[in-house]
């Protein structure tokens, strides 16, 4: 019998509104200190928890977060093959104009920070580390809450979802 809390992976997380606001504040703080193009806080399965994106960036953050999460998951396997016990603390991509750093928060979450080539990597590392220290206690509260999930997946939701699926997918066939 499968049980929620025995699952090895980071499934079934709930993030509350309060947590979300606190996290967004942290990311804003980081964005003020560094000239970043984009900051994403992503969970291990690729969903964006919070983002700060500069107005000049035109990309699709949903897709980017999915790609960073898979790449981050692949890094973890690389780390393992190299004899590390957990994922790399930091993974850096260097481009001609943009750099991107992925930094581990805990087993379930990481940050992806993109910044212009002119910004010193040491600064990014320093401030990202500080931000992670602020984020850790906030994210720690985001564990599974059965009662909350129960309320969300009530009978009404199940019915309405069925109707919406019929509608959305029927329209698609026309």
């Amino acid at each position: 019998m499968e049980m929620l809390n025995h699952s090895k992976d980071a499934s079934n997380q709930i993030l509350t509104r309060t947590q979300f606001e606190k996290i967004t504040d942290c990311l804003s703080g980081l964005a003020e200190k560094l000239r970043v193009s984009m900051i994403l806080l992503v969970n291990s399965s690729g969903q964006i928890v919070a983002e700060r994106v500069s107005s000049s960036w035109q990309g699709d953050s949903t897709v980017l977060s999915t790609l960073t999460a898979s790449s981050y998951a692949a890094s973890k396997e690389m780390a393992r093959l190299l004899g590390e016990v957990s994922n790399f603390q930091m993974v850096l991509y260097e481009g001609h104009h943009q750099n991107m750093m992925m930094a581990k928060i805990n087993a379930d979450f990481f940050l992806a920070v993109a910044f212009e080539k002119g910004v010193a990597i040491g600064m990014v590392r320093l401030f990202t580390k500080k931000t992670i220290e602020q984020l850790l206690p906030i994210l720690h509260q985001g564990k599974e809450d059965r009662d909350e999930i129960k309320k969300i997946f009530d009978h009404e939701f199940q019915n309405l979802l069925g109707d919406a699926l019929d509608r959305s997918f029927k329209e698609s066939l026309e």
Partner: peptide, 14 residues
């Protein structure tokens, strides 16, 4: 499953 209650989003992975 990931529930982002701040945005009222429910993410399911298929």
């Amino acid at each position: 499953m990931f529930i982002h209650w701040g945005l009222r989003e429910i993410h399911l992975k298929i």
